[in-house]
């Protein structure tokens, strides 16, 4: 069955709305929202990663940097009204969270554009290594930036009442569902577009694509910026989620590993792969963190990543497709 683009958008928005409303009506346990938020966050991160990694064929190991840049942009905006009041005696209303999310997206998108511009003209390997080292540098900058607490971190007090009724965590949960819906929609739209075709041609043979008139550098830059922006948007609500933001946890390597592992395990060729991967791995990790230990569950992710990459490089989606072909 062919689902047109606009119909797909309607469908996922409906699914998102039903999901939020149904959970708000039936589930009162706060823990569900805390755990669900993380899984949704990973849907956004891995979908964003896949726009560059799966469609364009460039590996980004710097998810942590883009994510944390979003989180720290939000933290700065959170502190801004108080600072303005203290130094210039200007009164400013607190910045609403959606504005922070947009700002976080802008900052991380620009960061993606910058790194991309410097390294994307070289072979893909160099881009990957640069992003890996990039995380360390952004972390160094944050550690040395006293305004946002430096290495000590910063406490963030949530606003007293949340919009949309319910507690603040429910509000964060709903916003993250919205972000997940938007990023999955964007990913699928790209996949079916001329732009997506161009990205795929870069992945399969960059030289041939360039020779056939695909504007490779511009397309790579757009997808890096878009991917970075989505990661930043996923990071922006983090200060309110954890209420204490520090470099060590916001730059955690787990974000980078998960956002690589989830698309690889789910399947990198289509939008559904990262979604399957993040729901599966995210849920396993949430359960393992509670029942076993958090170090061990990261080990599970690493081992799964290696196993899938070696044995089933096309992920779960690839396995299902192969199985279907054999049936037919």
């Amino acid at each position: 069955m062919r689902v047109s683009n606009s119909l797909f958008w309607v469908l996922i928005v409906a699914v998102g709305t039903v999901f939020v409303v149904a959970s708000r009506l039936t589930i009162t346990n706060e823990y569900f929202y805390f755990a669900g938020y993380v899984v949704l966050e990973y849907i956004v991160l891995s979908t964003a990663w896949n726009i560059l990694g799966g469609y364009t064929g460039y590996t980004n190991f710097g998810t942590g940097a883009f994510f944390a840049a979003g989180a720290y942009s939000a933290a700065v905006l959170h502190k801004l009204p108080a600072t303005l009041h203290k130094t210039f005696d200007i009164t400013m209303a607190p910045v609403p969270l959606p504005v922070m999310i947009v700002a976080g997206g802008l900052v991380s998108g620009l960061m993606g554009l910058g790194t991309g511009y410097l390294t994307l003209r070289l072979r893909g390997v160099f881009f990957a290594i640069a992003t890996l080292a990039f995380t360390i540098v952004v972390q160094t900058l944050i550690v040395n930036w006293d305004y946002v607490g430096g290495s000590r971190g910063i406490y963030i007090i949530r606003p007293a009442n949340a919009p949309l009724g319910g507690g603040y965590i429910q509000y964060l949960f709903s916003l993250m569902t919205l972000l997940a819906v938007v990023s999955v929609g964007i990913a699928r739209t790209i996949e079916r577009s001329r732009f997506g075709l161009g990205l795929n041609s870069i992945r399969d043979d960059e030289l041939a694509a360039e020779a056939s008139g695909v504007p490779t550098l511009r397309m790579k830059l757009i997808s890096t910026a878009l991917s970075g922006a989505l990661m930043g948007m996923a990071g922006a609500p983090l200060p309110y989620y954890v209420t204490y933001l520090d470099p060590a946890s916001s730059f955690n390597l787990a974000y980078a590993v998960n956002s690589v592992a989830m698309p690889v395990i789910g399947g990198m060729q289509s939008w559904i792969g990262p979604v399957i991967g993040s729901i599966l791995l995210g849920t396993i990790q949430q359960l393992a963190t509670v029942t076993i230990s958090s170090a061990l569950n990261l080990l599970i992710v690493g081992v799964l990543l290696i196993l899938f990459v070696v044995i089933a490089p096309n992920g779960i989606v690839g396995l299902v497709q192969a199985w279907r072909r054999r049936e037919a």
Partner: peptide, 8 residues
Amino acid sequence: QGLAFFFG
């Protein structure tokens, strides 16, 4: 895939 392998 190779990069992801070493990253893992």
